[in-house]
Write a protein that binds this DNA or RNA. Sequence first.
DNA 1: AGCAAATTGTCGGCTAGTTTACAAACCTTT
DNA 2: AAAGGTTTGTAAACTAGCCGACAATTTGCT
Lengths: 226, 226
Amino acid sequence: MYDELKYWYLRDHKLFWTLSMSQIKQLCIITGFKKANKGDIIYFSSSEVPRIYLLKKGNIKIVSIDENGNETIKEILQKGDLFGELSLEADENINEYAKVLTDEVSICSFLLSDFEDLLVRNPTLALSYTKFVGLKMKRFKNNYSNLVSKDAKTRLCSFLKDWAEREGIQDGLKYRLTNYLTQVDIAQIICTSRQTATLLLNELEEKKIILYNRKEIIIEDISKLN
Amino acid sequence: MYDELKYWYLRDHKLFWTLSMSQIKQLCIITGFKKANKGDIIYFSSSEVPRIYLLKKGNIKIVSIDENGNETIKEILQKGDLFGELSLEADENINEYAKVLTDEVSICSFLLSDFEDLLVRNPTLALSYTKFVGLKMKRFKNNYSNLVSKDAKTRLCSFLKDWAEREGIQDGLKYRLTNYLTQVDIAQIICTSRQTATLLLNELEEKKIILYNRKEIIIEDISKLN
DNA sequence: AGCAAATTGTCGGCTAGTTTACAAACCTTT
DNA sequence: AAAGGTTTGTAAACTAGCCGACAATTTGCT
């Protein structure tokens, strides 16, 4: 791929902010680059060589399948997010793949082994990376405890809040979201059945708290989402 | 504290196996040491200075309380486990504490800042630590998906299996566990009500799959736990 | 435009598990 | 050994959310 671009891609990511431009140039570990379209499936676990991926553009969901064939959404990723063997250890018995949600997606990747070398040579980067993984863990733990102690309605609201704060276009208390998720997706994210999700979304719409359609979601007043 | 002991404590932990004895001696970052008894509560989040703790002896549970005062068990820790600010970033809005489960517990601790310095100076250690945090995340994710897709009975069985493999005294397919958990604890771990946990435990006992009392749990045949 | 596929809406029946409530068994302390 | 607290056992009423089934709507495709 076009060499100049490589380090810009990395440069973009928070993790690499601490590094100088010349350091970034030195590493240039990106080895793969691909574009994909809505509906495409990208296998990454159980792939030949373990890699770490950086989502450059678009949105994808990480889905895992258990023994019984049940699909669970693990994460929704946006531009700038990392995925793949983030724990730096290949793990065959996890069966995950990524599914593309938006029209045009681009992803670049580097080899796990290259990244490890890089971390060993840049202890400060290693430290930031550990914090980054730690943060991710905290988010998981948080979702997990919501799942235990909150009902489906609360979980939907906090998901919408989260989404709005992450990706929404803000205008005072109003947020506008490009909706690339189906109600089935949303249901899976908040761990409920599709029917319940539909019910709750319509309920929120009736109460004029949100405005929902397949293209976008408008949250009239985010403080009412509770 | 007695200086010789310090590095033995660290030496014991998998994380530090890669380091030579002299390296360990050099660091000697342990700054705190305490003993505690059954029922004691150890606050560590929201403590003055962020620390990482190493459980040397005994068992503790990590409990968190949400806004509404609901207790959730986050983890059960055994000898050798680390806890505290593992993500290397203090976080005030998490309200966690540790409660001692067994008779005699000893814990040592070091300052987060000291540990960071250490990681920066030992890239290999930093890498192992990152993998360690990553592994922890994987375990959480796994529990989390069990919670979503499996019923209470299955969750109980896989918890017992886990526990037996981790701490049980094995004898063929038979495992003997020292039971330092109440049924309330078990219920919280598998995320169900106390009554359901009681019911399920008695059911397992009736089917002669386990033998349960307050002192110990005997699993007659671990392969039957499913 | 017209058809097929995907997505959303709606409705009972059903069940796993919660909640409330109380009693029995047990451990600890004096 | 009696008292008091904690932990377990059990039962009935209740409910959030699941499941199956089917219709209506929207979207993508040729």
